[in-house]
Write a protein that binds this DNA or RNA. Structure first.
Lengths: 348, 348
DNA sequence: AGCCCTACCTAAATCGTTTCAGGAATTGCG
DNA sequence: CGCAATTCCTGAAACGATTTAGGTAGGGCT
């Protein structure tokens, strides 16, 4: 089957190539009429012919001439992480609605790979990028600025004037998690976190501290810093839990899913039970949270909203309208298996 | 910063545009020399100038002229499913190595959306597609054939001469799962499965039946068919487990991750314990399997291999070399938290 | 009538690359 | 020495769309 071009359509419909181009690119006006200076009858005829011949625009040609690719790149630190894959799914959906193509890539927490990926996607003439930076990716991100490619940061912050940002208020997330436990009557609330943290984590720590201080519990503030590497991390969490009863710890905040898994593992190994020995507030989503009886309270991020806002913001930046480049979203606490319709913090 | 074109490079280097094009497209030969009829010194100079000027190929132009997009589409039924997102990650990596761009999309188990997506990606001039079909997508897939776009099917089979296939041998998967339980000394082994199954599921059922028959346990074959809808499904699994002791059931095979989750939920609700009341063999991967003591045996699919083989096969199909269009891979059983290096079935 | 305006349409240039068809200089070979 | 082959290089024609600049016809106005 030979490719049918705009020229074939024009000839068959007895009009000029230009006219066909007009018709094919016309958006529907709000009145259901095409918004281009073309006789509606002619337009209809062109459309009919195009359909009959099976015409499909050659995007390469269109892109070459117009200089627009209608393509964006999304680079996350780990696409096989449920958090990111869910975001990617929503980004794809949102972009699809806008007629934008998305190229996905995963930096695998490696700044060098991120750097390469940025080079690659720039080669694809992407009009913008949505990036979840990994530790140490400042240099790589600088390229986005150098090449003058609109870029929106998600999940983690990085310094840089030119970036758009769609970030979850992680201070608030840590705050509502802690507040909930305090509200449950607990005072000796501790946290387990990584030694070298990205902003999302350190913010959650600050939220925890803030809530503790506000409640006059500052003396109980205790953040156990563990290694990132899995084996060491598991062991350190186990140690932490082992001495918990000695310290009189009533609850732990486990600010990432992975840390939570280490936590559950430690419970298992030590033969501890969740509501009996102490309580958890975890983050993100896991089958394990739902399986527990009662369901483990956990803080979730508005993934769909992150996706939608970041696409919209990026689109605005590409079009040159950039009123507000910093969007902050609130995390929500899930208790008893159901989501509060309002941020929980507001209900205390 | 103005875009620098091949012409700028040519002028600066004092050579023709053609020559620059040659140099930029030359692959390294095995001897470390360029495989094009260009003087190595000239080539070096061109490369140097291109780098200094910051030249980047305009893919739209290249694609327009050459008629090749070096782009493939991957459409899975649910990208937020860990199984698929992991495959996608590996596909992206493999394709990236080959200089191929990947467009991902998710049909969300909806044949109509799949149909739209296929239209869309065809508009992007993709050279091939990797598709995990959903139920009822025969019509949508026919378009791939109509448009003559090389397509490889993963995860689930569909009829069609022209498709390439990279499928896991699910009969074998069901077989080794059952065989393992038999080897553990169990006889009354049952399975929970969906009523209306895709091939991957029905194949696992057949594998189960085959193993039972081979062991002379055909009288105990019992497949409990549940609804796909979550609430009904949960309830039906619960019912099934409740009467299990009456039936003397010793073990269950839960052939998808979701069914396994229903299973664990039922255990919780009914107050049953895993090694005590009966045993499980589950499928795919979940934090829950690993958390149990001992680790729940589960059958995993070679995700990376699926990804690599499907990209390679598709690439071959695009290039016109299609010796073997049907690739079958073996699933593996994970016991005690560690993977047998050989398919377990071989060790019995 | 003469002029402008609007509505509808078109010819031709252009985007940046690949590729075709060959040209010039050098080398190899009988 | 002369012809062919090889090596290195080049000009110009595509590819298929968008976009610029403008053209024609008809209607309304003065």
């Amino acid at each position: 089957m030979k490719k049918v071009t705009i020229r074939d359509v024009a000839k068959e419909a007895g009009v000029s190539v230009t006219l066909v181009s007009f018709v094919m690119n016309a958006k529907m006006g709000k009145d259901g009429r095409l918004d281009c200076p073309v006789n509606p009858n002619t337009a209809r005829r062109v459309l009919e012919v195009a359909k009959r011949l099976g015409y499909r625009r050659n995007n390469a040609a269109a892109s070459l001439r117009s200089g627009r690719s209608h393509t964006i790149a999304v680079i996350v630190s780990d696409i096989s992480n449920a958090f990111f894959s869910e975001i990617c799914r929503h980004i794809e959906n949102t972009a699809y609605e806008m007629g934008t193509t998305v190229i996905f890539a995963s930096s695998e927490e490696n700044p060098e790979k991120l750097s390469n990926l940025i080079d690659t996607v720039i080669g694809y003439n992407v009009e913008g990028m949505i990036i979840a930076p990994c530790l140490g990716s400042e240099a790589a991100l600088k390229k986005a600025v150098d090449y003058n490619i609109p870029t929106v940061l998600i999940d983690r912050d990085m310094p840089g004037e030119d970036f758009g940002r769609v970030l979850v208020d992680n201070v608030d997330a840590g705050f509502i998690a802690t507040k909930y436990l305090i509200h449950q009557g607990f005072g000796k609330i501790e946290m387990v976190s990584y030694k070298s943290g990205v902003t999302s984590l350190t913010d959650r720590e600050r939220g925890y501290e803030k809530a503790m201080e506000e409640a006059g519990l500052q003396d109980y503030i205790n953040i156990h810093k563990i290694e990132y590497e899995a084996v060491a991390a598991k062991k350190m969490v186990r140690e932490t839990f082992k001495d918990a009863s000695k310290r009189g710890t009533e609850a732990f905040i486990l600010p990432t899913k992975k840390i939570a898994l280490y936590g559950f593992n430690a419970l298992n190994v030590l033969g501890l039970n969740l509501p009996k020995d102490f309580s958890f507030v975890c983050f993100d989503e896991s089958d394990i949270y739902d399986l527990n009886k009662p369901v483990v309270p956990h803080v979730i991020q508005p993934l769909q909203e992150i996706a939608e806002k970041s696409v919209e913001l990026l689109s605005d930046m590409v079009e040159g309208k950039t009123d507000n480049k910093n969007i902050s979203l609130k995390a929500k606490l899930v208790v008893g298996g159901r989501l509060g319709s309002e941020p929980i913090a507001a209900t205390f």
